[in-house]
Write a protein that binds this DNA or RNA. Structure first.
Lengths: 266, 266
DNA sequence: CTGACAGAATGGTGTGACCTTTGTCAATGA
DNA sequence: TCATTGACAAAGGTCACACCATTCTGTCAG
């Protein structure tokens, strides 16, 4: 009935270091580390798994919830609990960073700077490693930008996909994940800022500069082009709204803002 | 009795977008965003808060647990639930990244590269912004390294503090947090690798180069010095153990490996 | 062969109870 | 008078049971 051999799930350790639910977390985590649980796998039903681990269902649920909160597990009512299956680029949840920002009053400038640093590093790596396939994807997205200069929303999609493609070309999934964390938060602000057409054209040009530098295998040029692009983007955004991060979570539509871009093929 | 005015906790929204517990999370998150909950604050008892929010205690606990999993809240049995109070440098939990690494088979090389990119960016910023106080701290730690060439464990403490101080000098707490996330994971591997004395001396010298570059306000030199240092460190570590990330969580003593360094004054 | 329906499977929520740890404070003894 | 100790209360941790909501699946009618 279950998708996994039950032998894998050994009962909980007798000598618990911390609380029972922490022990459950450790147990599940270890199964992931050891490769017993792989992305896409489905866990046994809660009632069964609780029995297998020798804990009550609420305790097991507590553990599952903790893992779900950090984006490792995902529960769907009626379906089951699964190890998160990320398509291509692994995604770290950005809400922790978002909350940190609120708690410690991170400025929007700090966010931009962090993104800039990450993207510059990524662009530099991309210039060294991009395959012809990567270059083709980048080119396509730029074409898409120019084709949607009169449709800011569509433009934004290509914009995000471009950056995603650059990240993919960098070959470093960790930097990619970190970049996405930061970018997701900044995007919450940006989505309300409908850029003017002129800005879009300028932005598309900047992207093209980045693409060219990557194509020419010039890490330094790619870094500089990316920096120029982001500096400009920051200025454009700041000029349109004087508000800081506080306005990011104004209404609903929170979470997974990059969902559409995260699922792209590149 | 409670530490907070109860007026702050309005009952749960009637039209729930997702599940009830998700609504609880949103509620608490919003209170943090709006500043109603600040670091160090204590939440009302679960039983009371559940009533205030109009949900059952298990549901509330689910929400609290999710927030606790991402490092925003912290529950202590018998004491209460508190908003996490980070001393100085905010800390993002590294376990999500660690799990991602296991799930997707991140290589140790990727980790090193990510850390290198982050630290280079941070070093560059530090060169532009370090105050005399920062420089003094950096100098002290380097002195500490040279003073503990025969004590690898002590050396490691100064090493970490140095990097922490550089991060502080960069003035960007987001990059600092991200760096710590990555460094924490790499540190788990490193702590078992007791470097030879010769390596330590060389390492101390490299740190000094970084310090000098920062002192001379040369961002480029600081970046390069940091890169050289980390490249060397990576080589040294790789030569001592051929294992990858898998050996990171071998036995106990997981979590909060940087705790001692996180609480440092700088 | 296809679509709709019914039932089972599974996670989500609620209620109530009890245990364990922590904190406080008064009683006690030096 | 002060420090120690003990008991009591507060608060989170765990458990059992019941029921709801959603999703999947397999069967049956068309």
């Amino acid at each position: 009935m279950t998708d996994l051999k039950n032998d894998k799930f050994k009962t909980i350790n007798p000598e618990r270091s911390g609380t029972t639910s922490e022990e459950v977390i450790s147990q599940l985590r270890e199964m992931i580390h050891s490769g017993e649980l792989r992305p896409g796998d489905r866990l046994p039903p809660e009632r069964d798994l609780a029995k297998l681990l020798g804990v009550s269902r609420p305790t097991l649920r507590a553990g599952i919830r903790s893992l779900a909160a950090v984006g490792v597990l995902q529960s769907r009512q009626g379906a089951g609990t699964f190890v998160v299956q990320t398509g291509g680029s692994p995604a770290l949840d950005s809400s922790p960073l978002r909350l940190m920002a609120s708690l410690h009053g991170f400025t929007s400038g700090e966010m931009f700077e962090a993104r800039q640093s990450l993207e510059m590093a990524i662009a530099g790596l991309a210039a060294e490693r991009a395959t012809s396939e990567h270059l083709a994807t980048l080119s396509e997205e730029i074409a898409g930008m120019f084709a949607s200069l009169d449709d800011p929303e569509q433009f934004l999609v290509h914009d995000m996909r471009f950056h995603q493609a650059v990240a993919a070309a960098s070959g470093n999934r960790i930097l990619t994940s970190l970049m996405n964390m930061v970018a997701t938060i900044l995007f919450d602000v940006r989505r309300k800022t409908v850029n003017r057409a002129k800005d879009l054209k300028e932005s598309a040009e900047m992207h093209r500069h980045v693409y060219r530098a990557i194509r020419q295998r010039s890490a330094e040029a790619a870094r500089n082009a990316m920096r120029d692009h982001l500096v400009l983007a920051q200025k454009a955004q700041e000029s349109e709204e004087a508000n800081g991060l506080e306005s990011a979570s104004g209404d609903g539509a929170n979470e997974s803002v990059l969902s559409s871009a995260t699922a792209l093929p590149g």
